[in-house]
Amino acid sequence: MSNTEAVKRENPFLGACKHVWKNYSIIVVCVVLFIIVGIFEPRFLQLNNIILILRHSSIVGIIALGMTFVIITGGIDLSSGHVVAFSGAALILIQGNEAIPIHIAIPLAIVVAILIATFVGCVNGTLSTKFKIPAFIVTLAIGIIVRSLTMFSLRGATAGGRIVPEFTQIGLGGIGPIPYSLIVWIICAIVLGFVLKFTKFGSYIYAVGGNESAAHYSGIRVNRIKILAFSIAGLCVGIATVLDMSRMASISPAMAGTMYEFDAITAVVVGGTSLAGGRGRIIGTVFGMILVTVVSNIMIMMEFSPFLSGAVKGGIILFAVLMQRKD
């Protein structure tokens, strides 16, 4: 039998499995993990718990979507969590300002918070491209600056806004059992996934990350693409901030957004995006985020000692990455 005939006679089911594993291994890993945990703890697989896991994944998950763009271009953003605090402070201070009628304060606060976060993202992109400073350093420095400004503006103390359902339900409410934060995450994932996969801009994102010089010589405005990527990341941070802070209508300037950027980066990398740039998908980030977030749920459902949460989280991440290794 010739090789061609052998290929033609390959088991179609096996071929389908290979195709799924090659392109969607992160999803397979998630499903396998859920099944394993569900065997030991059936309550884990209850619909309301699955929805809760997705709800808890959604806020940092939105940040991770924007982070995907940045990392595909070969950059990184270490300011995300700090910008959550910074834009969150603006959100709560405006929303809580009794001099502004609440029906004006809420939309105004939301718009301002999102604009601030997007602007900071634009600043990150501009500084890292125009001044040719590594994004690691730029975003680290900007993050420290905005966190410090947040602490200064609130004197380090928790600030509360007006606790009204029109505001708190943004983060707590939903359509039926589906939380608004999950709906927003799904919409953002669909939109950004479409942009990345089917638009010219998306192809430029990959081109810049894959080979910046070649992209430049082929006429792509590399700096502009990178600035836009960072701006998209900032926009995602702003949206996530609104969903996050509205839940409690308050902000702790020291604690808000803590470690969000690391969870987002972990989700992006576990989801298959290369830190070297040029490769990655939104769908991978989505399921990577679920893997990162599910740990706390597992710890509580299975009543593990909290001292083991780090070991469990690290183990899940290693499991996911090892399962996806492509030889």
């Binding site: 928790t158 996050d244 839940r247 409690m248 308050s250 702790s252 604690m255 808000a256 706390s296 710890m299 509580i300 009543e303 593990f304 000692s305 909290p306 001292f307 949460s309």
Partner: peptide
Amino acid sequence: GPEEGYESGPNRE
């Protein structure tokens, strides 16, 4: 739950 208590953090979220 565990004797150490369920893991959380010193903030509202």
